[in-house]
């Protein structure tokens, strides 16, 4: 009687364990996503805690101080900006200034009709569809309400998780590394260290660059008297994390809103120039200063990741697609390179 090779049994068990873990992660999707976002927040805040520790502060005190400062910043920022944001959101719901809106819609509708005619297609009335939009949004509100409540709960849980992940991060990391078998121990340490070197600089740099672009865009939009300047500024900053496409999307959004409300070409051209200047500042000043490491991703990879992220996870997926792809790329690259150096590959 022959027994199967114990190595194959072990590999089979590992595969089963891997599949079980993936299934568990999918089943606990919401919690896993929350934990991942909290881990990202903790990872971004870690250098601040280290700086305080280097000045002789205990880690727990340093984490407490960082969270206190962040809370003060978020709450005071919220108190100042929230009324503006809500007012601007309300503006969107009630609509643009009626006469300008009507004139622009007429103009756009005429273009669409002409183009459709030349292609032999009968276009539906744009005005009717646009007028239906606010009612449709209001109609969807009751279904969206539980989602909004969940989002609020998540917003409370993320700081909570982040605090503990930041405070206990080193011991959690040590505990996980300690569980690695002896043969793969140094290899694991080496891979994690290199990933941290590559990604830490990239992710923190992207975050700071997005923040600076959001502030600059908001100031420019405010100076150009563009309505919803705050919302568009924040969207432009967030979109900046998507290379190539993001900056264009941010500028386009600002120009479209400006055209719809002010309607002058000169105004739009001014905005375009301002956004090009912001981009140049971002590329030539901010990014070289804050991005200590860059993860080279090809335009095709960026486009694909944005499409996949957007399809699977909506707006959040759209924004996090590029950093997530960068994490994946660095993980695979560092693992394969280090495995080869340790003669596993």
């Amino acid at each position: 009687m022959s027994y199967p090779d114990s190595r194959w049994i072990r590999r089979g068990l590992f595969l089963l364990l891997g599949a079980g873990s993936v299934l568990l992660l999918v089943a606990l999707g919401g919690i896993v996503r929350l934990l991942l976002i909290s881990a990202l927040v903790a990872y971004l805040a870690d250098p601040l805690v280290r700086k305080l520790q280097a000045r002789g502060m205990q880690r727990t005190t340093a984490v407490g101080l960082v969270f206190f400062l962040l809370t003060v910043l978020v709450v005071s920022g919220g108190l100042v900006l929230l009324p503006h944001t809500l007012a601007q959101l309300k503006d969107i719901q009630t609509g643009f200034p009626a006469d300008q809106f009507s004139a622009i819609i007429d103009r756009v509708e005429r273009w669409v009709q002409e183009i459709s005619h030349s292609f032999g297609i009968e276009a539906n009335s744009l005005r009717a569809q646009l007028e239906e939009l606010p009612q449709r949004w209001v109609g969807q509100l009751p279904q969206a309400l539980p989602g909004l409540m969940g989002m609020l709960a998540n917003l409370t849980l993320i700081p909570f998780f982040s605090f503990f992940l930041l405070k206990d991060g080193p011991s959690i990391r040590k505990g996980l590394i300690n569980a690695v078998p002896n043969r793969y121990f140094e290899l694991t340490l080496s891979i994690l260290h290199k990933m941290d070197l590559q990604l830490g600089g990239y992710l923190r740099g992207q975050f700071i660059a997005a923040l600076v672009v959001a502030v600059l865009a908001t100031i420019v939009l405010y100076l150009f008297d563009v309505p919803y300047y705050l919302l568009i500024g924040v969207i432009a900053g967030l979109a900046n994390m998507i290379p190539y496409l993001g900056p264009i999307a941010g500028a386009l959004l600002a120009i479209i809103v400006s055209m719809l409300t002010q309607g002058t070409i000169g105004h739009a051209a001014g905005l375009l120039v301002a956004f090009v200047v912001i981009q140049q500042i971002d590329n030539l000043v901010i990014q070289p200063l804050v991005l200590s490491r860059n993860v080279a991703l090809s335009p095709l990879m960026i486009l694909l990741s944005v499409l996949v992220g957007g399809t699977l996870f909506g707006f959040v997926g759209l924004l996090l697609a590029v950093p997530a792809t960068a994490i994946l790329k660095v993980t695979i690259y560092e693992t394969v390179t280090t495995l080869r150096r340790y003669r596993f590959g």
């Binding site: 040590k174 002896n182 043969r183 121990f185 140094e186 150096r341």
Partner: peptide, 23 residues
């Protein structure tokens, strides 16, 4: 606090000649 305590069985390799050293 930052040291790792590792246990090895008799005959077990700690590291191999030629491998990159981590510490």
């Amino acid at each position: 606090d930052i040291l790792y305590r590792r246990n090895y069985k008799a005959g077990e390799l700690i590291f191999r000649q030629g491998e990159p050293g981590a510490g």
